[in-house]
Each structure stands twice: as C-alpha cells, then as structure tokens.
C-alpha cells in the first residue's frame, strides 16, 4: 500500500469532515447523512459486485437485517444501542453468508444470481411486514432518549462524523483488499472463474468471503439508518430502493474502484436535489434521472466517474496520444 493509493480517498474524507464547520444547516447535514448511509451500502455492494463481479439486486436483505436487528435488540431485548449495532452488522454478515452458501453452491451467476438475491430480499420484506414480532406493517419506533450512550446525539454533526468514520474505515479496508491477496483472488474469480480455479483459487470460499463482508458493510448502513431516523418499517428496511441505490451509486461512481461508491452517492443525490429544485418536489423525478443515468453510465462511461477520470489522466500523462 503506498501513499498514492490512499491520498485521493483521504482528501475526500478530509474535505467531507470539514463540512459541519462550513455550514450548520440541518437540511445540508440531513442530506449528507443520507448520502453517507447510501455510500456505505454502496461500498458493500461494490465489494461483491465491483471487485467480485457478482451483481446482487437484493442488498436490501442485508441493509434491512442490520436495521431490524439494531432496532429489535434495543426494543425487545433492552440491549445497549452500540452493542445492538455491532450485533446488527454481524447478523447482516450471517445472512450474507447463508444466501451466499445457497446461491454459490447452486452455481448461480449473472441473471440468476441477481434474481435469487432479489427474491431473498422480497421474502424478508413480506415476513417482517406480516410478523407481529417485527412490528408488522406499522413498523418500529425507537424511544427518543438523546444520550451518547444510546447512540443518539443532540447535534447532527456528531452523527455525521460517525457515519463518515464508518465510510472512511470501509475505504481503508477496500484499499487493503484491493492491494492484498484476497483482492487478487476476487479479481481472478470475476474475470474467469474456471481459470482462477485452475490456478488453485478456491472460488467458492473467495465468493463467500466477499458476500459476507459485503453484507456486513451494507448492514452497517442499515444500523446507521435505524439510529439516525429512529423509525423503520419493512418497506424502508427491506424495500427495493436501497438495493437499487447501492448498485446505482457504485456503478455511476465507478464500479470496482475504491472511492467510486462515495463519489457516486454524492453525485446521484446532489443531482437528485438539483432536479427537485428545478422540477419542483414531484415524487419520482429524481429517480427518473437516476434510471437514465444508469443507462447512460453503462452506455458511455462503463467505468463510472472515477474510472473515466483515471483514464483521462492516463491519456494526458502519456502525452494525450490517440
């Protein structure tokens, strides 16, 4: 790992860390916390989809598990919020591992893998929506008790920094994975599974590790969501919106790049707010833009924002040849 690998992500995090000093606007901080939660979920998606080449359409299964575990442990079990979050992250990882074992053992890839992940997320959504234990369709409301012990803060800035630390930790983890042995194995499995296996890579184990980690990261986003909004229901936690946003942010930002998901989440939500500013607050307008951006990104910039910038730099460094 060299300084050059770490510099751009560190700059990005440093800049974002300064925001609460530049503005105390609640709207702005609310917006950025949402962006960071989506970015974290997208970082999880990117580990499996970007580095591992397995496109999940159901990361809501992990986000929701993190969110529900955090809320249920506190409400039904009286567990401390911080500990509940840690267990929530672990629970997300376990769900990821289970889905991974089932799907990868059955050798599902491509469209089939996308479909089965989508189906698991839907099953969890229907179950939580119907069960009394999870609050049913009415959802769960966490008791407002603003104390740091409870992972609840009077100042939005503090929560913002905590979310930022989570994103930063995952950025660092991603750089380490990308540079390490595990990253090389993941890339090998993504590019050609048969060839990777022939070289002695245990493809199943590599994919299982990737989906477990990926799920745990996305579950962490769910835990943050619960603690920030203190409310959730099945359509929020297990809804398709988060599966789609995680995938979109990673792809628009730069699939399989370290900083892509964060840049993607910022860009998407920034553009989303702008569109709402121009078109008025019509439900769905921002998502129309997201959908078109996904098509455009794949059509014109399959490497996303980060990948395209990198290519520009390479072309310029090589004297702008061709």
């Amino acid at each position: 790992m060299t300084g050059r690998d770490l510099l751009p992500p560190a700059l990005l995090i440093g800049l974002l860390a300064l925001v609460p000093w530049a503005t105390s606007s609640n709207t702005m901080l609310n917006f950025l916390v949402t962006v960071l939660i989506v970015a974290l979920a997208a970082q999880g998606w990117n580990l499996l989809g970007g580095f591992g080449g397995q496109f999940s359409f159901g990361h809501a299964a992990f986000f929701g598990t993190g969110a529900y575990a955090t809320a249920l442990l506190q409400i039904r079990g009286g567990v401390n919020a911080w500990i509940a979050c840690l267990i929530g992250i672990a629970a997300g990882g376990v769900v990821g591992w289970v889905i991974g074992v089932l799907a990868f053992r059955a050798r599902l890839r491509g469209s089939y893998f996308a479909l089965v992940t989508l189906a698991f997320a839907e099953v969890l959504r229907i179950l939580t929506n119907a069960a009394d234990f999870t609050g049913g369709a009415a959802g769960l409301l966490l008791r407002l008790d603003v104390r740091p012990m409870n992972f609840q803060f009077a100042s939005r800035a503090v929560f913002y920094w905590i979310a930022l630390v989570c994103v930063a930790v995952v950025l660092l983890l991603t750089v380490m994975i990308e540079r390490g042995r595990f990253g090389a194995q993941l890339a090998a499995v993504r590019e050609n599974e048969e060839a990777a296996r022939a070289l002695g890579v245990d493809a199943l184990a590599v994919k299982l590790r990737a989906i477990t980690l990926s799920a745990a990261i996305t579950a962490a986003a769910g835990c943050l969501y619960t603690q920030y909004f203190l409310y959730l229901d099945a359509n929020i936690a297990y809804g398709s919106w988060i599966s789609i946003e995680a995938l979109l942010a990673a792809i628009v930002g730069g699939i399989g790049t370290v900083a892509g998901p964060v840049i993607g989440a910022l860009t998407l939500h920034g553009l989303g707010e702008l569109t709402k500013g121009f078109a008025g607050d019509i439900t769905g307008v921002d998502l129309v833009l997201f959908g078109l951006l996904l098509v455009a990104a794949i059509g014109f910039a399959p490497l996303g924002i980060v990948g395209s910038l990198r290519r520009l730099r390479v072309v310029r460094l090589s004297g702008g040849a061709r």
């Binding site: 080449g53 496109f55 359409f57 491509g110 469209s111 996308a114 789609i244 995938l247 792809i251 019509i282 439900t283 769905g284 307008v285 998502l287 129309v288 997201f290 959908g291 078109l292 951006l293 996904l294 098509v295 794949i298 059509g299 399959p302």
Partner: peptide
C-alpha cells in the same frame, strides 16, 4: 455484455416506473 444488458434494463425500469409516478 450480458451483465450490462441486465443493468440497462434495470435503469430503464427505474426511469419508466418513476416517470409514470411523476
């Protein structure tokens, strides 16, 4: 590319569905 085609149709579905919603 097959994966790309999958994502393009997903993008279209998001755009169409929310266009109708708007």
């Amino acid at each position: 590319d097959d994966n790309n085609m999958l994502l393009v149709t997903l993008g279209l579905s998001i755009a169409i569905e929310n266009g109708l919603l708007a």
